[in-house]
Amino acid sequence: MSDKPSDSSSNAGPIFLVGALAVAGTALGVVFFAADEMGESITYFWDPTQVVEAGSAAIGPDIRLGGMVQAGSLTWNESDQVVTMTVTDNENSLSVRCEGAPPQMLREGIGVVVEGTMTEAGTFDCDRLLVKHSNEYKAATEDMTAEERKALYKTVEGYEGL
């Protein structure tokens, strides 16, 4: 370590500290207090209610829709490779149609994010289907059947059956 100051700039440290903290604090403050507002304009996905409220404005452009797969709504047509389901936020729901094999985790009651377009007919045409996982990590239970256990070992295989 040097016994002498390297140059005059080393005495300016505290000034830079105050300056950097001020800039950093302001930036963080803006994000913190504006996060809610930003959520409106900079959004990763829309929920069904936002899409329904947007009405005809939602028809056409590529958007992401996020929500839960409604119980009893999921179908998988293997010969056509088409998934249909109802995505809901418990207030509003939209029918979604996706082409291609869905991720293995897709099931009823799970969160999904779908990318695609709203059609005039009121259904969402999806060309990319992502499955969300919750932050709940639960152990597989003992009373699972051998079949169910085996299913847990599947990873990237195509979704099979419902």
Binding site: H133, S134, K138, A139, Y153
Partner: peptide, 11 residues
Amino acid sequence: APTEAMMGEVG
């Protein structure tokens, strides 16, 4: 650890 209920082994 037991297998994760939703994700299986990848969990």
